[in-house]
Design a protein around this nucleic acid. Structure first.
Length: 599
RNA sequence: GGCGAAGUAGCUCAAUGGUAGAGCAGUGGACUCAUAAGCCAUUGGUUGGCGGUUCAAAUCCGCCCUUCGCCA
């Protein structure tokens, strides 16, 4: 049995399109990690789905006069289209609006309740007498009691940035019909974080040596300086997971409390869809299982404090409710490599102002790998980064095209021309040949350590540096000169370069899977590196939902073999005439793309 | 307001107390297999500011400025 690796990816809110900031923040790094671990022959399960509940979805539904379910399904379908085109290998991308997720979330809720980590408390909330319902904070606007600006939401004033106490808002009005709401008392469940705080702190201390500073300081640091306080986990809403307690059927679980449970429920659903209902335990109860949570920095407290607290509080009770004879506790996060944010042309991304590069729109005009490359080399791992169209253009042309793509093209086309489409037989390799191959072999170890510690930017830079080494090597040996004087010498140079390229293909493949596959085919390998993404309609008691699944099919990574190893290229092996891996861009795209922004 | 992260060459980033480096851009050169790509050489820095600790500070400490996130 190989090692289980769970890649848990942030759940996109099904109420807005996905832009490059979302992609580089969590979805892309997750896929790169997943593909790397697949190459290592590990049992990878990459899970996520659409966060279909919560007020952003209902707000949009109310605006458009449609059902929340319609909103979620529209965006859910778009997400899947984007992920297929960009090649994000989710083993399952599902939704929180399923019977399965409802069941898992309710079991977790009840487990926490039975274990004594939930309590109830009354508070005041805005109530609409017109609509006979409580209004979420985002539904109420009024005048800010700090700066006097009208149009402030009841939880926050966008003008002065203060968070507001709802009951102090001046002249509150419902956003739905303009009526004046009144304050009414309501009772909610709270997660007792004070009771869980010591165990959460122990969990964090065990990981503080390798977690990113922002993540550990914001979680462990907060516990040590301020401590944790109970947080409400239910709301007066009808769109969500019903609270599984008698007399509470009017209320739902708070979306931040429930959505993180999707990492578990999606694994359960994956097992059911693969006729192996116990499969989830491989990733969730095996102490050897390593779980990586790929999220943006806005989500750090939920993943580094609250979700671990939920998992600790649940103990063995969830596994027991799932029918285990010898129930086990659930596996806590191994790493939470949260990314910072990406800006655009020096300004904050803003969907409503169209200050964004949208994923699907980008792929109308460009290939997926240039986007994956630019977002990786510019990934906001330690601080906010910036998408700049000129830099995208430069890096595409100078690095992807000139350094890597051109290397492949110059070597393969030369080899094809002089050795009739067969890998040349080098005989005994020279000192320089062996030295180059040795440096790429070392590259396997270096890039491995970067991937293992989730330093993706360092990984891609090292790959590109190694491609540069091969270019230097070619300039030294000059096979175009050797071939005129002694073809057997040229055969050594070209074989060595082809061997290096075949290895670099593997190193690049988690980041540039489409072009690595293309190169893989050029080099005459039949079996694909990775599997494919398929969709499936699933019907349950709640409704019908689309899931996207990763199908390893007959790919190399389907076999539990470690492919992260320099495998010998067979002399005499047939290969194909290459075409350029990457498209060289014209400088006019810079201004064209900038002109699209902000309208 | 509290907490956290970040601020280093024109741009993107390295450098965890020991001579501030790399890539790109710029400049000069030789080559031609290749998408005029690749290779060699080279210009460029008061490490956001002020103060402190130290034989030695980008790095440790204090205060301040700017940007982003979380929380009240």
């Amino acid at each position: 049995m190989t090692k289980p690796v769970l890649i848990a990816v942030a759940w996109p809110y099904a109420s807005a399109k996905i832009h490059v900031g979302n992609l580089t923040g969590s979805y892309l790094p997750a896929d790169i990690l997943a593909r790397y671990h697949r190459l290592r022959g590990r049992d990878v399960l990459m899970v996520s789905g659409s966060d279909s509940h919560g007020t952003p979805v209902t707000v949009r539904a109310d605006e458009e006069g449609v059902l929340p379910e319609d909103i979620y399904k529209r965006y859910h379908a778009e997400f899947i289209e984007l992920f297929q085109k960009l090649g994000l290998t989710y083993d399952i991308f599902t939704s929180t609006h399923t019977s399965n997720h409802t069941d898992v979330a309710q079991k977790l809720f009840l487990a926490l309740k039975e274990n004594g980590y939930l309590y109830t408390e009354a508070s005041l909330q805005w109530y609409s007498t017109q609509q006979e319902r409580f209004l979420p904070d985002r539904y109420v606007e009024g005048t800010c009691y700090f700066c006097g600006t009208p149009g402030a939401r009841s939880d926050q004033c966008d003008h002065c940035g203060h968070l507001l106490e709802a009951e102090k808002l001046i002249d509150p009005k419902s956003k739905i019909d303009g009526s004046t709401p009144e304050l009414r008392e309501t009772t909610h469940f709270y997660l007792d974080l004070e009771k869980l705080q010591d165990e959460v702190a122990d969990f964090l201390r065990a990981r503080q040596d390798y977690w990113r500073p922002n993540v550990i300081k914001q979680s462990l640091g907060q516990i040590e300086t301020e401590g944790l306080h109970g947080r409400p986990i239910t709301r007066d809403l009808s769109w969500g997971i019903p609270v599984p307690v008698e007399g509470w059927d009017e209320k739902c679980m708070y979306v931040w409390f429930e959505a993180v449970m999707g990492y578990l429920s999606a694994a359960v659903e994956w097992g059911m869809l693969h006729d192996d209902p116990d499969a989830w335990r491989h990733w969730w109860t095996d102490p050897e299982s390593k779980s990586f949570y790929c999220i943006g920095k806005d989500n750090i407290p939920f993943h580094a404090i609250i979700w671990p607290a939920e998992l600790i509080g649940v103990g063995t009770s969830f596994d027991a409710k799932m029918g285990a004879e010898d129930p086990q506790p659930l596996v806590l996060p191994y790493d939470v490599p949260a990314n910072e944010f990406m800006n655009l042309e020096g300004r904050k991304l803003s969907g409503s102002k169209n200050w964004a590069v949208w994923g699907l729109d980008f792929l109308e005009r460009y290939d997926p790998d240039p986007m994956r490359y630019y977002l990786t080399v510019n990934m906001p791992e330690t601080k906010d980064s910036d998408w700049d169209w000129e830099e995208f253009y430069q890096r595409n042309n100078n690095e992807l095209v000139a350094t890597w793509g051109n290397l492949v093209n110059r070597v393969l086309s030369f080899a094809y021309k002089y050795w009739e489409g067969k890998v040349p037989d080098p005989g005994e390799l020279r000192k320089d040949d062996l030295a180059l191959l040795e440096s790429i072999k070392i590259g396997f170890d270096t890039v491995e350590s970067h991937f293992e510690s989730v330093k993706l930017r360092a990984a891609v830079q090292e790959c590109m540096r190694l491609a540069g080494e091969v270019n230097k090597y070619l300039d030294t040996t000059a096979p175009w000169f050797e071939v005129k004087t002694d073809k057997s010498e040229a055969a050594k140079s070209i074989y060595t370069a082809m061997q290096a390229i075949d290895w670099l293909k593997i190193l690049f493949s988690p980041i540039l899977p489409h072009t690595s596959q293309k190169l893989h085919n050029y080099l005459g390998h039949e079996q694909p590196l990775f599997g494919t993404l398929i969709t499936k309609q699933v019907e349950d008691d709640l409704s019908t939902h689309t899931v996207m699944l990763y199908d390893p099919a007959d790919s190399l990574t389907a076999e539990a073999e470690d492919l992260w190893t320099p495998k010998e290229l067979t002399p005499g092996k047939a290969f194909n005439q290459p075409t350029p891996l990457f498209v060289k861009l014209d400088a006019t795209i810079i201004e064209e793309e900038r002109a699209r922004l902000g309208s």
